[in-house]
Structures are given as C-alpha cells and as structure tokens.
C-alpha cells in the first residue's frame, strides 16, 4: 500500500522543529507535537499562511502522533527530552523511519538503542549542510529529501568514508 507519507515532528517548537515544519509543510501531511500548544498553534498558522493547502494537525501525545505517522522526526533540543520521547514511542515505530536531529552539544547521544526496530537515521544539522547517517535506503532517501527541502545539502555519512 502506498499513502501520503505523514510526518510527525516531535519537539516541533524547537528552532529546527519549526524550520522543518515550515519548510516541509507544503509537501507532507504534518503532525506536530510539543509541550506548548500555544506556540504550536502559532506555528500551524504560519505554515498555513505559506502553504494554504497544507495538512497540519496538532497532537498532544508523542505516541499517538508516531502511531499515525509514517516518518517521525525527533527535534526536541534537550538530550533528556529526546530520550524520553524515544522511550514513549518505541512500541509504535517498528519498521518506521525515525529521524533524530543531533545538536552540537556535549551531552548529545544517539537514541538508536531505544528504538531497536525502527529504521533509524541520525542527522547532524549545520548551517548549510546536514550529515545524514543510517542503514535503510528508503529512509535515507526520505531524510535526504526533507533536508533538501530545508535548503540544506544532505551529506550521507557513508560517502565520507
């Protein structure tokens, strides 16, 4: 079966979360999740101004958003928040593309061990490019497209070796 690839952005109020939502809103149906509904509502309004036909839903629970989504982006900034989200969504992410946005902070760790059955991709975000690392080809291709839509050049880690 093939359906519209729905993307959930967890931690959508973070700077990169907002950027992703604004840039890919016209291409993918979006499910946005974060602590502050007020900020999410503003973000949704902004996306709809730029892409009037965008499909954007606000969802309070990260597990519900991930259950409905085909691709999940964990964009929360704090490492502890990312780990907490990963442990909540593990059950519903089997065989789904999960993208972790890695921030250049000292405590940034991979949450891949918490999501052993997902098609995991890690993305290190920089100003003009993003380093993308993962094993599943379809997931890498989706991630590359998302990074590209954000105006960044995807650099696939395999190609660096």
């Amino acid at each position: 079966m093939q359906y519209n690839n729905t993307v959930a952005i967890l931690g959508a109020n973070s700077a990169i979360g907002q950027m992703l939502a604004n840039q890919i809103g016209g291409n993918y149906p979006l499910l946005l999740m974060d602590g502050s509904t007020e900020n999410l509502t503003l973000l949704k309004q902004h996306i709809l101004t730029t892409h009037p036909s965008a499909q954007v839903e606000l969802i309070a629970c990260s597990k519900d958003a991930s259950w409905e989504a085909d691709t999940i982006i964990i964009a929360a900034e704090a490492s502890a928040d990312q780990a907490s989200i990963a442990s909540k969504i593990n059950e519903v992410t089997t065989c789904k593309t999960v993208i972790q946005i890695r921030y250049a902070s000292a405590d940034s760790v991979s949450i891949q061990p918490l999501l052993p059955y997902s098609k995991f991709v890690s993305v290190e975000w920089a100003n003009t490019a993003a380093i993308v690392e993962g094993n599943d080809e379809v997931s890498l291709s989706i991630t590359g497209e998302i990074v590209h839509l954000c105006g960044l050049k995807p650099i696939f880690k395999k190609s660096l070796i």
Partner: peptide
C-alpha cells in the same frame, strides 16, 4: 512483532489509491 509497523488512519483517509 518486529516485522509489523503499527499504523493509525482516520476515517476517509486513503491507504492506497488507484495507480499506486
């Protein structure tokens, strides 16, 4: 369990469209 992907869909939402 590790081969199945849990998925929720809403009323009237497509899972497959003609041509795909």
């Amino acid at each position: 369990k590790t081969f199945f992907s849990p998925k929720k869909i809403r009323k009237k939402q497509y899972l497959l469209q003609e041509g795909n």
